[in-house]
């Protein structure tokens, strides 16, 4: 199973993360313990500087088996459930939010805490979903990427957690 997992040498993937299927994790990305990444219907390709927190779930449920490609600088917070068709860059998925399988997340979107986006289609750049009733608006600026948090975690995790070994990508 683990043979299908490809981890960039600069990525920090904790051993207690639950990763199944064909998953590729890019440079400087951090995957917390108990984060779940499931390549159920097709592979998952995660780009650079992404932060995936504990109990967050990323799953590929594309019926056609197409890969779920995730760009760079995305932040998937605690308990977020993300089953999108594709994800661009600089998005923030808030705590316990839900993103449906038919959603195409473009860039710099932010899904608020416990908000859900289930309707099929594109989430235009800088779309912000917020509040109890999943109101939407377009922001004028990108959400702040968790740069400093990533830096700290990249330093701290190797001293306190077992990590999944880096594999040199064959591709």
């Amino acid at each position: 199973m683990d043979a299908e997992l490809q981890v960039h040498p600069r990525a920090v993937v904790c051993n207690e993360s639950i990763i199944t299927g064909s998953v590729t994790i890019g440079a400087d990305s951090v995957v917390h313990p108990k984060a779940i990444i499931r390549a159920t219907k097709g592979p998952i390709v995660i780009g650079e500087r992404n932060l995936i927190e504990e109990t967050a779930l990323i799953e590929n449920t594309n019926e056609d088996g197409a890969p779920l490609v995730i760009g760079d600088d995305n932040y998937v917070e605690i308990g977020a459930v993300v089953r999108a068709r594709s994800i661009g860059s600089r998005n923030v998925f808030g705590i316990q939010c839900v993103v449906g399988a038919e959603v195409i997340v473009t860039d710099a979107c932010s899904i608020g805490v416990r908000c859900s986006v289930l309707k099929r289609g594109d989430l235009a750049p800088r779309t912000c979903v917020y509040g109890e009733h999943n109101q939407r608006r377009t922001a004028a600026i990108d959400p702040e990427p968790p740069t400093s948090l990533l830096e700290v975690l990249r330093k701290v995790f190797p001293s306190y957690h077992h990590l999944k070994k880096a594999t040199v990508s064959s591709a």
């Binding site: 932010s110 608020g112 800088r126 912000c128 917020y130 509040g131 109101q135 608006r137 922001a139 004028a140 600026i141 959400p143």
Partner: peptide, 12 residues
């Protein structure tokens, strides 16, 4: 200034 909930900012 910016709002952490709806991402409104003074740029608007």
């Amino acid at each position: 200034l910016s709002c952490s909930t709806c991402k409104w900012s003074t740029f608007e």
